[in-house]
Design a protein around this nucleic acid. Structure first.
Lengths: 175, 175
DNA sequence: CCGTGACGGTCCACAGTGGACTGTGATGTG
DNA sequence: CACATCACAGTCCACTGTGGACCGTCACGG
């Protein structure tokens, strides 16, 4: 009985539906397609691939140049992926260190915060611009609404965050 | 030289500024005050307390009833906390399994998603209502804007998410 | 007086993060 | 051509984070 896979492993199985890929490829693929709301690291990918190979969910192919080793989906892997898809997804997790600092702001010398806040705001403004560009490109390429759901999440999220930054009280934004 | 503390340990040091607390207390305190954007678990709290006691950042007091053991801040702990506050906070992390499922929606039988989506929407609607109640209570109690910054983040976030849910294409919401 | 449940903590397995490190092939420049 | 450089591909480790199982202890209601 193939052990239940975790969400990260499942995402790898998902990508392998499009053909065998190496760990390195999978990191790139994942970063590009789900990286905005699902982080994963090299270490994790190789660990999961090894574990899934053990469990028969994927099959390692012959190593190519530079030890490059592609993994192919097996039927058991396809089954494990479908099983994962049918489980109710867990709630999202957010950890925001800046909010932690804000929560302890009374312990900070005044003015200390402004720089941190400005840097984070700039980061979010940049991400928002990036998402808008992505959306425009996708629409120009004829994407359907259903293709934009995850991108739209990012858009709304970043809009909300930038809006929040723009309504912070002066105690927090004045350097 | 007191080792640099991580954000979780630092938050414990922050809470201990208000007086000695046990690990159990700290879990409650943290859950109530920063739980919405900074998760931590029992295991982690006891682990960090032990490590910080080793490093001299906190001091364990005599065990009371039920092995209850309170920890008190030391000067080194106060220093480590201030050092942490002065570091630029990292970017936030979001991991949203539902988006992962949506990203792989083409592998799902139609109709499968609707239930998941509805459940998550309901959860967010509930959280939004809770935040609004909290805000109203805080305002009624005379809170200043600066006291509401983290709560406002939650409010804007949940508003954005619910709005996103309300604009999902029918392929995703129809059961 | 006893069952139940909140209190308070320990322990473990698994998952996730990030950096250090190794070696290899492609590439472009003197 | 030789060689420096850099992207590729993977390994490994320490630390951090998550969640559940488990244990004993006290308080309180029936």
């Amino acid at each position: 009985m193939a052990r239940r896979v975790n969400a990260t492993a499942a995402s790898l199985l998902g990508f392998l539906h499009d053909g065998p890929q190496s760990g390195y490829d999978l990191v790139q693929t994942a970063e590009a397609s789900i990286g905005d709301f699902w982080s994963l690291t090299r270490s994790q990918v190789y660990r999961e691939l090894a574990a899934m190979a053990d469990a028969g969910l994927v099959e390692a192919q012959e190593a190519g140049a530079r030890d490059r080793r592609a993994y192919a989906l097996t039927d058991a892997g396809r089954g494990a992926f479908r099983a994962w898809l049918s489980e109710p997804p867990a709630q999202e997790q957010i950890r925001y260190p800046l909010l932690l600092v804000l929560a302890f702001a009374r312990h900070l010398p005044p003015g200390q915060l402004a720089g941190f806040v400005a840097a984070h705001r700039a980061e979010h403004v940049g991400r928002l611009a990036g998402y808008r560009r992505q959306r425009d490109e996708a629409l120009a390429a004829g994407a359907r609404p259903v293709d934009l759901v995850t991108l739209n999440f990012g858009l709304r999220y970043e809009e909300a965050v930038v809006d929040w930054f723009d309504h912070l009280p002066p105690e927090v934004t004045d350097g």
